[in-house]
């Protein structure tokens, strides 16, 4: 598994994946749809899968002494690491944003604990949609990205709209972290759990799809 991850990082991962991690800094932009910040990892996943396809990665990997299911495991591990790093790097910027002494985000959700929870759900949905299509035919990378991007766009629109019109979200979740911490922590924990469940589900499904896929 270590060798497969080494292969993912040294050969397959697109260099922009690292660059996108640092776009977590967007959380200090005073007014911005902060969910988009976390979607950049989705773009990195797309570029990485595209890079793999253009370089015959699946063929190269399958000639190595590895089983098909481990190829999936390595890709998911890389993706989850990238997504978690994006979240982790975003934390200090969220704290900076909250302490800037200016009003909250006028676009939608503030850079707070609940945003992270809801972004975990968003990344979970992205993984389910993207990999659900991708591992049916790894030669087609555009379709899974197009479909997952549309789904995520809709998710962001709904989530940001809720921050304006749903009273619970607007008055409790879309606030500074010094109030309603319990509610926000519940959203964060629920978000992480949903993200984990969705990843386990799509990992198992991808394994099944890839097992019957002819390279």
């Amino acid at each position: 598994m270590k060798n497969l991850l080494k292969k993912e990082v040294h050969l397959t991962m697109h260099p922009t994946a690292i660059l996108f991690l640092f776009l977590s800094v967007l959380l200090i932009v005073p007014n911005y749809p902060y969910y988009v910040t976390f979607f950049y990892t989705g773009l990195a996943v797309f570029f990485t899968c595209l890079n793999g396809r253009e370089n015959n990665d699946v063929f190269f990997t399958m000639t190595m002494p590895v089983a098909k299911k481990d190829v999936i495991k390595a890709r998911f591990t890389l993706v989850v690491i990238l997504e978690l790093l994006q979240m982790l790097i975003a934390v200090p910027f969220a704290i900076i944003r909250q302490n800037m002494g200016i009003p909250g985000n006028a676009v939608g959700m503030d850079a707070n604990i609940a945003l992270f929870g809801l972004s975990f759900v968003m990344l979970g949905i992205f993984n389910v949609v993207f990999f659900g299509i991708y591992y049916k035919d790894v030669k087609k990378v555009g379709k899974p990205f197009a479909v997952s991007s549309i789904v995520i766009f809709i998710y962001i629109c709904i989530a940001e709209a809720c921050a304006h019109i749903v009273p619970f979200v607007r008055d409790r979740l879309d606030t500074s972290d010094n109030i309603y911490v319990t509610e926000k922590l519940i959203v964060l924990i629920a978000g992480i759990l949903i993200y984990a469940v969705m990843n386990v589900y799509i990992y198992k499904k991808s394994k099944k799809n890839f097992e019957i896929y002819d390279i």
Partner: peptide, 29 residues
């Protein structure tokens, strides 16, 4: 797979990576 090798033509993967990078990854398997 440890005891065999499958070559499809020459090298048709990672054409723009240095050989030493490809070797370095390959040998770890």
């Amino acid at each position: 797979k440890q005891r065999i090798a499958f070559l499809l033509g020459g090298v048709n993967y990672y054409l723009n990576k240095k050989l030493k990078t490809i070797t370095n990854v390959t040998k770890s398997f």
